[in-house]
Amino acid sequence: MQAFVKTLTGKTITLEVEPSDTIENVKAKIQDKEGIPPDQQRLIFAGKQLEDGRTLSDYNIQKESTLHLVLR
């Protein structure tokens, strides 16, 4: 499924993900596309910070959801 990641600069990245993907996995995909190390990434969805060990389905993130990427 497709999900979108919006950065603070307003850029939107499109990712191909599965509901079973972990947040860690998603961060690795963002690193592949953008070169941002996962340890600098914080992903926010519905106002919550997403934890590495959880999956997209844990957070009820469905296709075409938009996550927000904040860098630390």
Rank of each mutant, 00 (worst) to 15 (best):
Glu16Ile: 14
Thr14Gln: 10
Gln31Val: 04
Gly35Cys: 05
Asp32Cys: 08
Leu67Gly: 01
Asn25Gln: 14
Glu34Trp: 15
Arg72Cys: 11
Ser65Thr: 09
Gly10Phe: 03
Phe4His: 12
Glu64Lys: 07
Phe45Asn: 03
Gln49Lys: 09
Ile23Thr: 05
Thr22Ser: 08
Val26His: 00
Leu67Lys: 01
Ser20Asn: 12
Val5Arg: 00
Asn25Phe: 11
Phe45His: 09
Ile13Leu: 08
Ala28Leu: 14
Lys63Gly: 15
Val70Lys: 08
Leu43Arg: 00
Gly53Thr: 10
Ala28Val: 12
Ile61Ser: 03
Ile44Lys: 05
Leu67Met: 09
His68Ile: 15
Ile23Ser: 02
Thr7Phe: 15
Pro19Gly: 08
Glu64His: 11
Ala28Cys: 09
Ile30Tyr: 02
Lys6Asp: 05
Gln41Phe: 14
Lys63Phe: 09
Glu34Pro: 01
Phe45Thr: 02
Glu51Met: 11
Lys6Glu: 09
Thr66His: 15
Lys29Tyr: 07
Gln2Glu: 08
Asp39Gly: 11
Thr66Leu: 10
Lys29Ile: 06
Lys63Asn: 15
Gly10Asp: 04
Leu43Ile: 09
Glu18Cys: 12
Glu18Leu: 15
Asn25Met: 15
Glu64Ser: 10
Asp52Met: 05
Asp52His: 06
Arg54Gly: 05
Asn25His: 12
Thr12Trp: 10
Gln41Ile: 12
Asp32His: 11
Ala3Cys: 15
Tyr59Val: 03
Val5Asn: 01
Asp21Lys: 01
Gln31Ser: 12
Gly10Cys: 05
Leu71Tyr: 08
Glu64Tyr: 12
Glu51Gly: 04
Gly10Thr: 02
Gly53Asp: 12
Glu24Leu: 15
Lys29Gly: 02
Ile30Met: 03
Gln49Phe: 14
Arg54Trp: 11
Val70Ala: 08
Pro19Ile: 09
Thr12Phe: 10
Lys29Trp: 04
His68Phe: 14
Tyr59Met: 03
Lys29Leu: 09
Lys48Arg: 11
Ile36Arg: 02
Glu34Met: 15
Glu18His: 15
Thr7Pro: 04
Glu16His: 11
Gly53Cys: 07
Ile23Cys: 02
Ile30Asn: 00
Ala28Tyr: 12
Gly35Ile: 02
Thr7Leu: 15
Asn25Arg: 14
Gly47Asn: 06
Glu34Asn: 10
Glu64Cys: 10
Lys33Glu: 07
Lys11Trp: 08
Glu16Ala: 09
His68Tyr: 15
Leu71Met: 09
Lys29Asp: 02
Ser20Lys: 09
Glu24Tyr: 15
Thr55Ser: 08
Met1Tyr: 12
Gln41Lys: 01
Arg72Val: 15
Asp21Gln: 04
Val5Asp: 02
Gln49Trp: 15
Thr55Val: 06
Ile13Gly: 00
Val26Ala: 02
